[in-house]
Design a protein around this nucleic acid. Structure first.
Lengths: 244, 244
DNA sequence: GGAGGAAACTGGTCAGACCACTGGACAATC
DNA sequence: GATTGTCCAGTGGTCTGACCAGTTTCCTCC
């Protein structure tokens, strides 16, 4: 029975995870430049004091993320992640050394402002059966949520319904990638956004437009919903980004 | 020295790749349903006649793709890939049994029509130094290209310049994911699009708008550039998608 | 100088062992 | 009777060391 001892779960990270992260940082921060060869697996294993299997696992993950290129018999080479990596790398780029990279955050907000309204319009265009009830329930959950973090999660759940209604696998997967990027930072960001987002009415308008099947209205409602928080955060991050 | 014998390189796929693909298909096609448990690694290894290391590598790749959830001590469970997987799964969804899934292709075209103009607008808004020359060279390469496949590659190179100019890491990574999805199918799709895309002038207008820094004009030029091929392919795929 | 080929790399795969964790069965306790 | 604690079988995590399969290097031989 723990009282107010403020105990945190012990972070017990897997060995290949640690190797992966070390190499990831090297690649992203430019310690290993594109075209450069990595040390051999045996060498890395010895250097890091882990088994070759662990190194292999890490390298293979880097390979799947398209950060390196592994060739049987040859040496493993670093790729240019800006030209090769997929959207799933975004999380690693957003959070660095435990803090948020403002330029990446800016980019995320920009993209959200483009994609959100488009998805809303598609959802309205298709407005599948039952969407009204789902949106209703999502909004009720939103209204009932006192905590900022819970509010963010409820907002994600709302958008989840919208994305699902849009019936577009690409936007669905994009949304998944974005959520995977966003969720780990939710504690930090929800604090910044807490004052901005209590605009239940805007969610209502968006839901109405989707149910009505009015694509243009849905697009506009989504823009209206996203613009305030986007601008607020954008200017906050622009401030941080100054020493560029 | 091989003459015209039409010999193809022997496909010598790595063992973990084959295991990965088998499990991937099971998950995507629903042979393994979300929440369901996979057989243990030892069991899979025996069933498939490979070492446990190979199975582990495949499972770990599935895990990174968020298709399964691996828990130390517990069993590995299938996730709902539609709700969890990232944009990098798109390639596996687009091409199935060697043929293209029309509903996925439709979704890609929709997304392209949304994101392309937005990226063009951003590129115009920022219009970095030297962008004019880069666009010029990309267009020249396009003009000089006789083959459909090479034309598609040159078009990708053009967009590469645009995306780079937009200075948005999110759109850059999205573009990378899309390109990774598209490139393997380029032989098939370039044939479908060959008649549609010889609109060099549209590329010119887009480049002009970007160089001029006119975001709205760039957005419109991009729409004008993408709309014809989008509609052509969309209706072609809609035809295929009928028996839904 | 060029072609061929050995040798010393590299990554790929396997086998088997042992560690660390989970979850359920079961006994001890209240 | 419900709760707590313990144990144990099964699962994934890691290591070792060996061998296979490609690449690259470089040296020999023509």
């Amino acid at each position: 029975m723990v009282g107010r001892m403020a105990l945190r779960p012990v972070a017990r990270r897997a060995v290949p995870d640690q190797v992966f992260e070390q190499l990831l940082v090297e690649v992203i921060d430019g310690g290993l430049r594109p075209g450069e060869s990595l040390p051999s697996e045996r060498e890395l294993a010895e250097t890091l004091g882990v088994s070759r299997a662990a190194v292999r696992e890490a390298l293979q993950r880097l390979s799947q993320t398209r950060l390196v290129e592994v060739r049987h018999g040859g040496s493993t080479k670093v790729r240019d992640f800006r030209r090769a990596a997929g959207l799933d790398l975004l999380g690693s780029l957003l959070v660095r050394d435990g803090s948020i990279d403002p330029s990446v955050a800016r980019s995320i907000l920009e993209a959200r402002l483009v994609v959100g309204p488009a998805v809303a319009a598609l959802a309205a265009q298709r407005h599948p059966d039952g969407i009204g009830g789902q949106l209703q329930r999502a909004i009720e959950a939103l209204a009932a949520e006192p905590e900022p973090v819970g509010w963010q999660l409820a907002a994600l759940a709302f958008w989840d319904v919208v994305v699902d209604a849009a019936d577009s696998i690409v936007f669905q997967l994009m949304f998944n990638s974005m959520r995977a990027t966003y969720e780990p930072t939710i504690e930090v960001l929800s604090a910044l956004m807490s004052g901005e987002l209590n605009q239940l009415a805007a969610y209502g308008s968006l839901a109405d437009a989707i149910v009505a099947g009015d694509a243009d209205a849905a697009r506009q409602a989504a823009e209206k919903l996203l613009t305030p928080s986007t601008n607020a955060l954008l200017s906050a991050f622009a401030e941080l980004e100054k020493p560029r």
